[in-house]
Design a protein around this nucleic acid. Sequence first.
DNA 1: TAGATTGTTAATCGATTAACAATC
DNA 2: TAGATTGTTAATCGATTAACAATC
Lengths: 214, 214
Amino acid sequence: MAEKENKISNAVIKRLPRYYRHLGELIEMGVERISSNELSVRMKVTASQIRQDLNNFGGFGQQGYGYNVKILYMEIAKILGLDKKHSVVIIGAGNLGRAIANYANFEKRGFIIEGIFDINPKLKGSTIRGIEVRNLEEIEDFAKEHAIDIVALTIPKTQAVDVAERLARLGVKAFWNFAHTDLNVPEDVIVESVHLSESLMRISYMLENGSSMD
Amino acid sequence: MAEKENKISNAVIKRLPRYYRHLGELIEMGVERISSNELSVRMKVTASQIRQDLNNFGGFGQQGYGYNVKILYMEIAKILGLDKKHSVVIIGAGNLGRAIANYANFEKRGFIIEGIFDINPKLKGSTIRGIEVRNLEEIEDFAKEHAIDIVALTIPKTQAVDVAERLARLGVKAFWNFAHTDLNVPEDVIVESVHLSESLMRISYMLENGSSMD
DNA sequence: TAGATTGTTAATCGATTAACAATC
DNA sequence: TAGATTGTTAATCGATTAACAATC
């Protein structure tokens, strides 16, 4: 299944979006070129790590010069798949679902919200950023008729587990999970979880025990 | 400053809330005891890792028996500081701020929302879960009069950087940062960032290049 | 007691950092 | 060309896994 030649480690993948963000900021500041060393100061990582990370994907730099900011930015976009469109469906039209739907920048990066669903029939027909809220019951028919790349789950955990199972069976390959639970889907299905309560607990721990970087 | 004897690694700290969640679920299911091996199957980690992790904090188990679920749950709560109250202030009363404010379970874990602030004067006086929305201008006076443990930033990046700097100067020790930027605060200040766009980009990467676990 | 399972030490694996030759 | 900085190999560091003696 299109297995890549040399496996990129998870640690590297997690850092890529951060490189991308910083390069975007540098472009806005009008910076044309940057050395791994300058970037390392800005990002508070080692220059060595930056060079190692980038060289997983190819030699984007030039000896004696450094990296061209715009080119590197575009290359990372390509690596991250941001040059392609991704259709997104949001399940749950509560505050969190609406927060995601309203984040305009997602569209700029190629994430197109194709539908919003909620179990509450009262919301049916209302719109969020011009997108009609549909009843959750319709999701399976919708999934059969539309190619959905990513499903965002902003509903309570019991429902989230159930909906994910059903949609995975219909071929959805990626879930963005905001429910406070693990999902029960096949190995090859991507699950990226945002567990806000766990994030908050880490703050609590660090307040008790003194900070620690990440 | 109350430096702990043996430094706990970040990797361990990140896993603690997940142990806590699973133990909570086990309690709900009426499970009284569990071995590291049974837990490892449930959580999809190695039993070895579970025992190593827990033994950073003390021997909570018993040979030949395993772990008492309720006791372990309470011990982890204590380690995470969930037995203490933490005051939280939310900056930004948009969808994301409201989503956080409305998450009832936070209060159960001892996180008390003391105030909500927004730059939009039209919101002034409206309430979220019974908490009045104040004008952002009032935050510094508020910070001087109240002990704030954690400040959640759900405002655009420029404002977030600015507000964080000002509040750090007033002694706030922890920020829960939802803005798409790094904060500029002293080393000893805790910053836990939730970068939703970076999370979404990781999904995009994995869709392009085949999944990878975490 | 015998069996089970922990706590902990040792071995392995992987990720980060350092170093430097290649080269622009 | 000389200077700068990459790409990449080697060294180090840390985290995970395996193994097993201790002990309930």
